[in-house]
């Protein structure tokens, strides 16, 4: 961490307009002549190694790393395209729509496989499956469910054990949660049945994977559905209490994506950062280790099932979204 200064800053009085950041860190402030402003949905501790490797290679570039939710990134980017240089988000659909709407800069210098980029503007750099994470304590003496169907059966078998103790994304607030839910709904009717069961158990709704995992560890909930496997894996290592299940009936795997703002003032540095990002995450550089899953995926994890294509915009349509949310609400929130 030679070039790195980690500074936690209070929210007010920043260059960027007052904003409720989940986190904000500045890398390599002392040597930097230019600065990249990155707005991201990825937790700093997961992403920091990538930034540190970048500033080590480019000592003249500093990085301003802001963390917020996926829906907020989309809103910020649309409101003020000049305010940030790079957007990194796990919500593929929102990122694709940003690109489709012309907010992304075309980067011809980035070499990336066809399936992992869109319009040479939006670049995927991880492959991350959605997982069911359980607190093992809740299943002691019972078989661990391996599919959604088995989870439904397990929940139905012991409703009292799980009442108020199941959690999933609040798709109204989380872009990633909405993406996972819509893709699940597209894949199978099982999703709706699971939602109805979870609804009947008085489901807890979360904004983020991190909080769900926190509550799993404390034992506040026993089952979390559609948690990011990458986040859970980091915590599961230290917490023996958790078990991560990748549903074997159908996997839902998303790709974390990055794009450079059309209005960036430092296009060259931004392009270099994206090049660095996709190179590190391609696994070509064996020495570089990243806490984030590689794009090629690890053994047993197939290529992303959610493709980067215009169809991702389908569920972002206002009418479609309203319909989906009303169905989701009626299934999950049973007053």
């Amino acid at each position: 961490m030679r070039y790195l200064i980690t500074v936690f800053l209070i929210v007010f009085g920043q260059v960027v307009v007052a904003q409720d950041w989940e986190d904000h860190q500045i890398f390599n402030a002392e040597n930097a002549t230019t600065s990249l402003r990155i707005v991201s949905s990825t937790d700093t501790d997961l992403f920091a190694p990538l930034i540190e490797a970048f500033v080590a290679k480019h000592p003249d570039v500093g990085v301003d790393y802001f963390v917020t939710g996926t829906a907020e990134i989309d809103r910020l980017f649309r409101d003020k395209p000049k305010a940030f240089d790079i957007a990194i988000s796990s919500a593929m659909d929102l990122q694709l729509k940003l690109t489709n709407d012309g907010f992304a800069l075309r980067l011809n210098g980035v070499l990336h496989p066809e399936w992992a980029q869109w319009r040479q503007s939006l670049f995927a750099f991880t492959s991350e499956p959605a997982a069911i994470v359980i607190n093992k304590a809740a299943f002691s003496g019972y078989p661990i469910p391996r599919t959604r169907q088995e989870l439904i059966q397990a929940l139905r078998a012991r409703p009292e054990a799980f009442r108020n103790r199941v959690g999933t994304y609040d798709v109204r607030k989380s872009g990633l949660g909405y993406l996972f839910a819509t893709q699940d709904a597209r894949a199978s009717e099982t999703f709706w049945r699971l939602m109805e069961v979870m609804g009947s158990l008085n489901v807890r709704l979360y904004c983020c994977s991190g909080e769900m995992i926190d509550d799993l560890i404390t034992g506040r909930i026993s089952v979390a559905y559609n948690v990011l496997e990458s986040y859970a894996a980091v915590r599961a290592e230290s917490q023996n209490a958790l078990e991560i299940i990748l549903p074997s009936d159908f996997p839902t795997t998303m790709m974390r994506t990055a794009l450079v703002s059309r209005d960036t003032l430092v296009p060259q540095q931004a392009e270099r950062f994206i090049q660095h990002l996709v190179h590190q995450q391609s696994g070509a550089d064996k020495a570089a280790s990243s806490p984030l899953p590689l794009l090629g995926g690890e053994a047993g994890v197939d290529r992303a099932t959610i493709a980067l294509e215009p169809a991702l915009m389908t569920f972002l349509d206002a009418l479609k979204r309203a319909k989906f949310l009303s169905e989701w609400t009626s299934a999950l929130i049973q007053d």
Binding site: T99, N100, G102, E114, W118, R119, Q120, R186, E309, P310, A311, L312, M313, T314, D317, L319, K320, K323
Partner: peptide, 23 residues
């Protein structure tokens, strides 16, 4: 009320090798 439940295939079929934008 009018409901338009856009099929996923509607935009999916507009996928092109050059990643054309759709409006």
């Amino acid at each position: 009320a009018v409901e338009v439940d856009i099929p996923y295939a509607a935009f999916s079929m507009l996928t092109t090798p050059a990643d054309d934008r759709v409006f």
